[in-house]
């Protein structure tokens, strides 16, 4: 199945846990420290530097881009570390998360509540996945180095639906 970002409820509702999908469009990288900061911004009542509505966050801190390449190795990192931050971002309109491994029951409930989706990317296949990234632009938190937020444009990025909008998990 092919899907395009930004995601809307109609697209999301079609996705079932275990489905293999090819995702195209813009996604944003963010991992531990970027999540902490994004949530601090939300808690302080300020506006985020980019709109999360319908967007997809990829739990990824790529290795450096070799000369002549768009991006370095860029596989997913362990999603569970982001669990405590996810509900806040979902409440701001985030619709998709990409990572590896399981999620907490709270995140699962939040995914259902906000009609969102959690995808699994091929774990430990960063070199291969770099082939699907067509553009990369640093948009926030440069000081975080590999944990900065990048706006990526991907084409046919291979994913598996981990938790669907009905709260069903592939690991059940």
């Amino acid at each position: 199945m092919n899907i395009k970002t930004p995601l809307d409820a109609k697209q999301i509702k079609k996705l079932k846990s275990g489905d293999e999908v090819l995702l195209s469009g813009v996604i944003y990288t963010a991992r531990d420290q970027a999540h902490k900061r994004l949530c601090e911004v939300i808690n302080s009542g300020k506006k985020l530097s980019f709109d999360l509505k319908g967007q997809v966050i990829y739990y990824c801190g790529p290795s450096m881009a070799p000369k002549g390449k768009i991006i370095g190795s860029c596989g997913p990192t362990t999603s569970r570390r982001m669990d405590e931050f996810s509900e806040k971002l979902l409440a701001k309109g985030l619709k998709g998360m990409i990572g590896k491994g399981g999620r907490s029951q709270d995140v699962r409930a939040a995914i259902k509540k906000h009609c969102a989706v959690y995808f699994l990317a091929y774990a430990g296949c960063g070199a291969l996945l770099s082939k699907y990234v067509k553009k990369s632009e640093l948009i926030a938190y440069k000081d975080l180095g590999p944990e900065a937020i990048l706006k990526l444009e991907v084409k046919n990025f291979p994913l598996i639906v981990g938790i669907d909008s009905y709260g069903r998990s592939i690991y059940d």
Binding site: C60, G61, P62, S63, P66, K69, G72, S73, C74, G75, T77, Y122, G124, C125, G126, A127, L128, S130, K131, P146, P158
Partner: peptide, 24 residues
């Protein structure tokens, strides 16, 4: 299918001199 991707990843990494995993 995933294992096939893991094996393909190793070949891409070796051939293109790009890290096997971003977590180096």
């Amino acid at each position: 299918k995933f294992l096939a991707a893991v094996i393909a990843n190793a070949f891409v990494a070796e051939k293109e001199k790009i890290a096997i995993c971003q977590d180096t």
